[in-house]
Design a protein around this nucleic acid. Structure first.
Lengths: 119, 119
DNA sequence: ATGTTAATTAATCTAATTGTTAAATGATGT
DNA sequence: ACATCATTTAACAATTAGATTAATTAACAT
């Protein structure tokens, strides 16, 4: 899983993936076109996606065509779903585990419970 | 989004996130314990998660307690859901467009197959 | 005040990632 | 065989990421 997330962690790669999801099968050259970076750079981004199992290739005439591996999307979906309960509940799970009573309690000398000073 | 994916792209950070999802709020020290790496290293991993909006902290006594930001999970869910149609169909969309006979052959010389690159 | 525990920041090193240009490979067409 | 287009590999420079140890800050407790 970390490798799959890493594949999506680069803005260029994420854009490539989103385009493949939207448009279907696209050649390496066509994928490279919208970007300001060189073709070899794109080629290597695609290689990262392929190694992570995010895309697969086929050869057609002189072109390499790439497409998303649906299983990769399923894997992502399943990871998120596994923790679905976390954000699906009416109010946050942690609000229940550590409710008000506990959050301002203990002679609040240094207890800045709600000190989200970095929000 | 790429920053959020990047936060999950490291095995240590992913393990931290999964533990927070399973167990709720955990202190920095307790998060560090299962790992063989140093505490400063964990501290920086947590900082990455925080910067990406994946976790938030609060201070309680001398401890910093961390928890998942449910919104981050919702963001991930929404990204995947946006392309739900891709893997939700009874069998893969691309399986239909490029069935077995055509797929993955490395010596696919001059494959002049049906040009269904766009659907 | 002083000591103790918790956690972060600083300084530094190594390894991995990302990009470039130039050369090599693969696939087609003449 | 040869020319041509599409893409990848090689070789290298710059940046970022991840780890370590040592020093510093923060919060309590005595």
């Amino acid at each position: 899983m970390p490798e799959l997330f890493a594949a999506l962690a680069d803005p260029v790669r994420l854009a490539i993936v989103e385009r493949l999801l939207d448009e279907g099968e696209i050649s390496a050259g066509a994928l490279a076109e919208p970007f300001a970076i060189s073709k070899p750079a794109i080629s290597r981004h695609i290689a990262v996606l392929e190694k992570a199992g995010m895309v697969e290739r086929r050869v057609k005439k002189q072109f390499r065509l790439f497409r998303i591996r649906p299983q990769a999307m399923r894997d992502l979906d399943q990871w998120v779903r596994r923790y679905r309960h976390f954000w699906e509940t009416s109010f946050d799970r942690l609000e229940r585990l550590f409710p008000q009573s506990e959050r301002g309690a203990t002679d609040n000398k240094g207890d800045s419970s709600n000190d989200n000073s970095n929000a």
